[in-house]
Measured scan of single mutants.
Amino acid sequence: MLEGKVKWFNSEKGFGFIEVEGQDDVFVHFSAIQGEGFKTLEEGQAVSFEIVEGNRGPQAANVTKEA
């Protein structure tokens, strides 16, 4: 699992990017966010995740919000 911070997330469109120190930003789709209820992320929020190869390159999977 990697750790990063949410760079930005558009809850209307359901996607955004996660910043990872020393690496390129990683695309995140709302469907990759773990948990119940409305799936969104806040700018600057700490998250842990895995990287998988998507249709358009690397993207986040199994995203969990850090306490």
Rank of each mutant, 00 (worst) to 15 (best):
M1E: 09
M1L: 08
L2A: 15
L2W: 13
L2G: 09
E3R: 15
G4L: 01
K5P: 02
K5L: 05
V6F: 02
W8H: 06
W8N: 04
W8Y: 09
F9E: 00
F9L: 02
F9H: 01
F9S: 02
F9G: 01
N10L: 10
N10H: 15
N10Q: 12
N10I: 13
S11P: 14
E12T: 11
E12V: 09
K13A: 08
G14I: 01
G16R: 00
F17S: 03
F17N: 02
I18E: 00
I18N: 00
V20H: 07
V20P: 03
V20S: 12
E21P: 08
E21R: 15
E21D: 14
E21F: 09
G22N: 14
G22V: 03
D24I: 12
D24M: 14
D24F: 05
V26A: 04
V26P: 01
F27T: 01
V28C: 06
V28N: 00
H29C: 04
F30E: 05
S31A: 09
I33V: 07
G35M: 14
E36A: 09
E36C: 05
G37D: 12
G37R: 06
F38I: 14
F38C: 05
F38E: 07
T40N: 12
T40H: 09
L41A: 04
L41D: 00
E42H: 11
E43G: 08
G44R: 08
G44W: 05
G44T: 05
Q45I: 06
Q45V: 14
Q45E: 06
A46P: 12
V47T: 03
S48G: 11
S48H: 09
S48N: 15
F49I: 04
F49L: 10
E50K: 11
I51A: 06
V52D: 11
E53Q: 15
N55Q: 13
N55L: 08
R56A: 12
R56P: 13
R56D: 10
G57L: 05
P58L: 09
P58E: 06
P58F: 10
Q59C: 04
A60P: 01
A60E: 00
A61R: 15
N62D: 04
V63Y: 00
T64Y: 07
T64H: 12
K65H: 11
K65V: 13
K65A: 12
E66D: 15
